[in-house]
Every structure is written in structure tokens, then in C-alpha cells.
Write a protein that binds this DNA or RNA. Structure first.
Lengths: 345, 345
DNA sequence: TCTTAGCACTCATATTGCTGAAGTGCTAAG
DNA sequence: CTTAGCACTTCAGCAATATGAGTGCTAAGA
């Protein structure tokens, strides 16, 4: 629904709307009729512009903070702008180069790659950047290792298709022989299976073990629980950038952003629920599910391991952001990340 | 040096200083001579109090923001207060109980325990809480596991004495046989050895392998590098609390705190350099090595695994904090953590 | 019918001057 | 050494006032 143009606006009006948004993004101050015709070569009189702006306000694209102030865009105004006026083309070559340069180090650890990506997103946007790890539950199991690290403590190490390593301790004790039997069983039956399915698979295949191998059965059950409870992680960077944004005269949006940094679970949940898997996605102000983000905008996209969508990345900044630039940035960074995954094969 | 009383102050003067600090901590407003005699049962006239305060100001313990404002403590004033007037005794039983209650969950993962500890510190202090992981370089090796996870990728998993698990990938390829030989070698020679020494130990013991086992030698060298480069980690919580502190009318101290949250490496370095290993340590304002912390105070202490000091924990808050309470909190939390480590044995 | 000049109106912002309260420092007397 | 008294300083809050940016409306012109 949102991607259908809300209404057909007359060309002139669109030009005004666009000019207002541009100007407001640049200056941060409400923009009046005079400034507009002076700086945005519109060949109309201030009075006409005022009439048009009044109409745009009537229709919900603009608003003004008080009687004698200029106009500022509403969420709906930004939405129209993003949907109809932003063209995802033309990144200056030097920008392209700049992103690529940031990825200088060699990353053989995926964790480092993702953390650097969030750093790059934040650095180049000057807002908050984030990268979700590949979705654990849809990720496929590549290798499982078991280590008896103490008398009643077994360490499970899991390597997934996308290269993530997860480890978790459980209470269990197996003899050397049992350990290697269970390990072989798990690797044989679960290789290539998604973490989400591993749970069921263990249960269905478990009859391979005889009744008297009670300890193994119990351990296998615990391991399947571990898989079931495995959660995603997220890398967030540049929260401090947002402190510098002059728009926020009160602390609230900032505070909620910092809290996000701390309550990552919630953030992950939101991102996972809200994301849209084709192209670059923009949530403006109140469009965000989470009330705390109502004064911020979020630009996201997905990244892929081969053909499969595995994770989400993006930036969070003020509503008054350069959407075009940010959408391009997010899109390019995701492409580069895709390439890293591809090259890994 | 700092712990020697700076000067011998007359009892009366000390009482004034103490009263001013208490009152200022409570109200956050500069405190004048009248309020002081009214609310802190001092049997002197305002004029005398003024004379004494003027002397205290002369000596550097107090200051005042402008002519007709009351006095506020300087860093030196707080320092005297912390060194000479704070008694680390008597925590209300319910406080004690409250801390213990927070540690409800069972923690078989040390990571969870430490992360919860930082959450508790922040929650009970309403400031920023942090916990450093056990110092990796002094930690002893308990178990090493090697996994060949791809053709040229070897995963090293390390379990240390204090229960931390670290993993790292390196480029290497060994046959099944070589793998288990190297693994046995490492576990045999390095168990109980500190990570810092492991480096040398590998080099000195490596002649066990023959010349023709070039691949093993090369891998062992790489593993020793991994040990050498292993760094500590830190858990930080409650940065958003500091946003709410009304003292900060400008953003700077806040911003630096958030940046800390992101530039953990720097934070770790500072903490490691500054910490003092006996008892509760307090750094007030400009006493902090790091300029960014000059408007904040930090209360830290160490925690132990058995007899050995392994890590640092603490809180960061405004200079105007209830030092007594905070020092007690930090001290008690560390004791509880010590107990967890002990019980683990 | 659309555009625009003109004008009255509104409201935020900045400046000023005033007053009262809080608190100090100093002086001189107890 | 203590304290009462007093002159002085400074801030916080308030009201009065001016300024100016920007609007909406009306009526005349294209």
C-alpha cells in the first residue's frame, strides 16, 4: 500500500514539496515562502507559493510549528518524497571508492567483518549504524564439536553455513567413546540442516541409540534445546553521533536510542519483525512500530549469503536526513557484504 | 600519596566541609551559610560559618560559581571526603538482600554472570556499571580444542581457568592425525600455564616435533600468535541512565561516555592502567587519566578467582554522587562475584 | 479562473529594565 | 575568636517592548 503514490499531485505542487523538504533537510529551519522562491528558482510569487503550501498542508504533506513559522514536512511528506522523488542512482565514484577503502583489513572472521560493517555504516552516515548477524534459526549447520571441559560441563561449538561460530555450555558428562559417537551422529544427521529444523531432526533420528545409552539420549535432548534457544546478535555503532544532532533539544529520542544499544534483544526483535526483504526499506518517524523511534527514521536493507537472505543492516538517524544518500549508502554496503560472502565460497 | 590526609583540618572545619558535601550531593544546589546551620545542626552563626567556608575555599576544598552563590565542593574537597570521612560499614540488610536477589538466575556461563553483574551495578546505582572480563593474559589455560572447519581454516577454542571461552580462526590445514597430535601436545604442555606465557612455552617445547612436520610447526606458531594477541573484553550497562542526570546541561560528558561504550578498547586500556588492586578505588573528576572523564567520577574495585585478582568492576557517575553508597555497592558486588568463583571449584 | 500585490494579523524571539532573594565580604563591637 | 550588621554582588524571574518572519485573506489584474 505504501508504495503506491498516495495521490497524484500536480507537478508544480510536487516541486514545492520537494523544494521544502530539500531546504529543510539542509538547514533544519522551517522554510517560508520567500526563502523558497529566492533559493530554489521557482518562478512564482510568494503568495502563490503560500497558497500551494496551504493546500499541501491541507493534504497532510506539510505542517508548521506555529502561525508565523515556515513549513516543515510531515512524515507523510517525507514518505511521498522517498517513494516518488528519490532516485537510487549515481553514486559518485569517489564515494564508492571510499566505502571500499574502509574495508581494508582482511577478514577471516565473520564477526570482525560484520562489526566493521556497522562501523562503516555509522562512520559514513554520521548516524547510528547496525548489522544483524545472519539469522541463526535459518542458518545451516556445518560442523558441531563437543568438548568435555569439566566433570559435569560439556561445551558445544557450532559452526554455521554463513560462518558464525556459537558456543554454549550444558550440564552433561559423557565418556570419550560416547562423546565421539554423539558427535559423529550429530554431524552426520545435521550437516546442512537449518538450526530451526535441527531440533526436530534430533528427535526423529535419535532412535539410532539404544535404550541403555541413556546419558547420550539425555545429552542429545539438551543439545536440541540449545539449538532451539539460539538467538541472533547485532552490532550497533555510532550511537554517540546522534547526540550531536541539533534537532534534539530534548533527550528522549536519544535516550531511547542508547537504551536500544543496551537492550539489544528488543532491537533484534523489532528489526526481525519490521524488515521487508526487497530493496532498500525506509521507515519514517511514526511508521516505526516502536514508539521510541517515532522521532527517528530507519533505513534498512538485507544482505545475502549466495541467493539466500541472511541478515539485515541499516542506519538510524533523524527524520531530517538525506534519504537519497543514506539509501544509497545502505544499498552499496549490503552489495559489498554480499560479495564478501560470495568470495568466501 | 593520595591516601594520606592532605592537611590536618580542625574538627569544626571538617564538619562544615562534610555538611556542605552532603547537602550538595542531596540537592545539587550550591549551599549557603544559612541553609547549613538550619539543616545540619551546627551551633555557630552564619557569619562564622562564612569565615570557615572562606578558609576552606582558600585551601581549595570548596569553590563557588559566582559571588552571591553558595559553596560547592571541588575535586579536592570530594577527595578529602572520600579519604577521611567515608566509612565503609553498615549496609542495610535489605540492601544486601536486594543485591543478592538480583542474582537470581543460575549462571553456568561466566559470560552471563559478568553481563548480569554489570546490569546489577548499573541498576542499583542508577549510573553506568561495567565489568571487565578476567584478565586474559594472566588467566591460565585449562583446555584447548582444535577443529578443522574448512579446507584452510582451523578453529581454536580455548577454555581458561576462570571459565572464559575464546575462539579464533586461523589459516591452516592439518590431517586428522596431525590435529590430534598437536592438540595433545598443546594440552599437555600448556595446561595451567598463563596465556601470556603460553607464547614462550610453545616455542621452547616445540622441538618435540620433527623437522618433517613442518605444517604442525607452522600452525603451532600461528596458535602462539593467537595467544599473544588475545585481549580482554568488557561489559558496560546503563549508559542511558547518565542521560537523565540533570547536572549535565551540555552534552559533552555524556557524549564521551557513550563513546566509551563504543570504543571499548580504549576503555579497557584505561581501566587496566588506572586500577589499584587493594580495596575500593575512587577517581574524582580530573583525577581520571582520561580527559573525557573529567566531569565524572569512577568507583572501582577488583574481583578474584580464589586468591588471584582477575578482573575489575565498577561504576561511573557524576561527581556529585553518594560515594558511601556507591563504594559499598561496588564492594559488595565484588564480594558476591568472588563467592561465585569460589563456589565453582 | 488563476496569479499576485498589498495589508492586517499572529506569534516566536530577543532585548531591556526592574525587583527580590540569596549570599557574600567586611567592619566593628562583644 | 565570635557575631551582628550592613553594603555589595549576582542571579532568577518577570513584564514590557520591539522586531521580524511568515501567514491568511482580499481584491485587482491577466
Amino acid at each position: 500500500m505504501r508504495h503506491i503514490a498516495l495521490e497524484v499531485l500536480k507537478e508544480r505542487k510536487v516541486k514545492i514539496l520537494s523544494a521544502v523538504i530539500h531546504h529543510y533537510i539542509k538547514t533544519g529551519k522551517p522554510v517560508g515562502s520567500n526563502v523558497l522562491i529566492e533559493e530554489c528558482d521557482i518562478s512564482l510569487s510568494p503568495a502563490t507559493v503560500r497558497n500551494l503550501m496551504a493546500e499541501l498542508e491541507e493534504e497532510g504533506y506539510l505542517t508548521h510549528p506555529h502561525t508565523s513559522a515556515g513549513r516543515i514536512p510531515t512524515d507523510k511528506g517525507y514518505r511521498y518524497y522517498v517513494d516518488n522523488l528519490v532516485k537510487l542512482q549515481g553514486f559518485a565514484v569517489e564515494e564508492e571508492e571510499r566505502i571500499r577503502k574502509e574495508y581494508e583489513q582482511k577478514h577471516n572472521e565473520i564477526e570482525g567483518l560484520l562489526s566493521e560493517t556497522s562501523r562503516i555504516l555509522s562512520g559514513l552516515s554520521q548516524y547510528t549504524g547496525f548489522v544483524m548477524t545472519p539469522k541463526t534459526q535459518y542458518d545451516e549447520i556445518r560442523n558441531i564439536e563437543l568438548m568435555q571441559i569439566a566433570k559435569e560441563e560439556l561445551l558445544i561449538v557450532l559452526l554455521t553455513e554463513s560462518g558464525m561460530i556459537k558456543h554454549k555450555r550444558i550440564e552433561a558428562f559423557l565418556t570419550q567413546g560416547q562423546l565421539s559417537r554423539l558427535k559423529n551422529f550429530l554431524n552426520e544427521k545435521l550437516r546442512g540442516v537449518s538450526v530451526a529444523q535441527a531440533n526436530k531432526r534430533i528427535v526423529s533420528e535419535i532412535r539410532d541409540f539404544k535404550q541403555n545409552e541413556d546419558e547420550i539420549l539425555k545429552t542429545a535432548k539438551k543439545i536440541s534445546d540449545v539449538f532451539y534457544n539460539m538467538r541472533d546478535d547485532i552490532y550497533i555503532d555510532g550511537t554517540s553521533n546522534v547526540v550531536a544532532i541539533p534537532d534534539f533539544n530534548d533527550f528522549e529520542p536519544l535516550k531511547s536510542l542508547i537504551r536500544f544499544n543496551e537492550d539489544k534483544e528488543k532491537f533484534i526483535e523489532i528489526i526481525n519483525k519490521d524488515f521487508d526483504d526487497n530493496g532498500v526499506n525506509v521507515k519514517i518517524g511514526s511508521e516505526n512500530t516502536l514508539a521510541e523511534l517515532k522521532d527517528l527514521s530507519m533505513v534498512t536493507t538485507v544482505y545475502k549469503n549466495g541467493e539466500r537472505v541472511v541478515g539485515v543492516l541499516g542506519i538510524i538517524g533523524p527524520k531530517r536526513m538525506e534519504y537519497q544518500k543514506m539509501m544509497l549508502l545502505v544499498s552499496r554496503v549490503s552489495e559489498i557484504l554480499n560479495k564478501f560472502f560470495k568470495d568466501k565460497e
